[in-house]
C-alpha cells in the first residue's frame, strides 16, 4: 500500500505541503464554545491538523499539550473577559521554558484597548465576532510560516 494521496484538481498526489498543526484552547473556565467549533472546522477545511482538547483551564496544561503535540500555533479563545490574565499566563510559561517557535494567536470578545497590549506580549490576531474566516485563516498561515522558518534546518 502506498502512502495516502488526495485529489487536487482531479490529480491524485501526495501531500504537497506539510499541514499546519494548531491547538485550539480555552485557557480559563468559559462555556462559550461555539466559536471554537466553528474555527476547528474552518481550520480543518483549510487543510490544517486541529487539536481541540476541550477546556484547558490551566496555562501549564495548554503549554504542555502544545509541546507534546508539537504544534505550530496555539489559538487561544476567550469570551468571558479573562483574556488579559489568562493569555498572559500562557505567554509567561512559554517564555519561561524558552519556547519561541510556537506562534500564539488570540480571539473572542477582546476590547480594542486590550489589543495593543496583547500584541506586545506576542499574541496576535485577537479577532472578535463577525471576522471573516478567511482573514483568520490567512493570519494563522502567516504566523505558522514564521515559526516553520525558525524550525527549518534546526536539526542537522
Amino acid at each position: 500500500m502506498l502512502g495516502g494521496r488526495y485529489s487536487v484538481n482531479g490529480k491524485s498526489q501526495k501531500y504537497t505541503e506539510k499541514p499546519i498543526k494548531i491547538l485550539l484552547a480555552k485557557p480559563a473556565i468559559d462555556g462559550h464554545d461555539r466559536g471554537i467549533f466553528v474555527l476547528a472546522r474552518a481550520f480543518r477545511d483549510a487543510g490544517m491538523e486541529v487539536i481541540y482538547a476541550g477546556l484547558l483551564p490551566t496555562p501549564e496544561e495548554v503549554v504542555e499539550t502544545a509541546i507534546n503535540e508539537d504544534v505550530d500555533v496555539i489559538a487561544l479563545s476567550l469570551l468571558n473577559g479573562a483574556h488579559m490574565t489568562a493569555f498572559k499566563n500562557v505567554m509567561n510559561i512559554l517564555n519561561k521554558k524558552g519556547i519561541r517557535d510556537i506562534a500564539v494567536v488570540g480571539g473572542g470578545i477582546i476590547p480594542d484597548i486590550d489589543k495593543p497590549k496583547l500584541e506586545k506580549m506576542g499574541i496576535t490576531g485577537n479577532y472578535g465576532p463577525g471576522t471573516k474566516l478567511n482573514i483568520i485563516i490567512e493570519h494563522v498561515k502567516k504566523r505558522a510560516g514564521e515559526v516553520r522558518k525558525m524550525r527549518e534546518n534546526e536539526y542537522k
Binding site: G3, G4, Y15, P19, E49, G54, E61, N68, E69
Partner: peptide, 30 residues
C-alpha cells in the same frame, strides 16, 4: 482538504498530566 480534527485527546486529557503520560495525536493523512 487533507486537514483533520484530532479529537481523541479530549477524552484522555484529564489523566495525562496527572500521570505524566506522553500522548500524541496524528492524522492518517489519508
Amino acid at each position: 482538504s487533507g486537514g483533520s480534527i484530532l479529537g481523541n485527546r479530549i477524552r484522555m486529557q484529564e489523566n495525562l498530566s496527572k500521570y505524566d503520560i506522553y500522548m500524541r495525536s496524528t492524522s492518517n493523512r489519508l
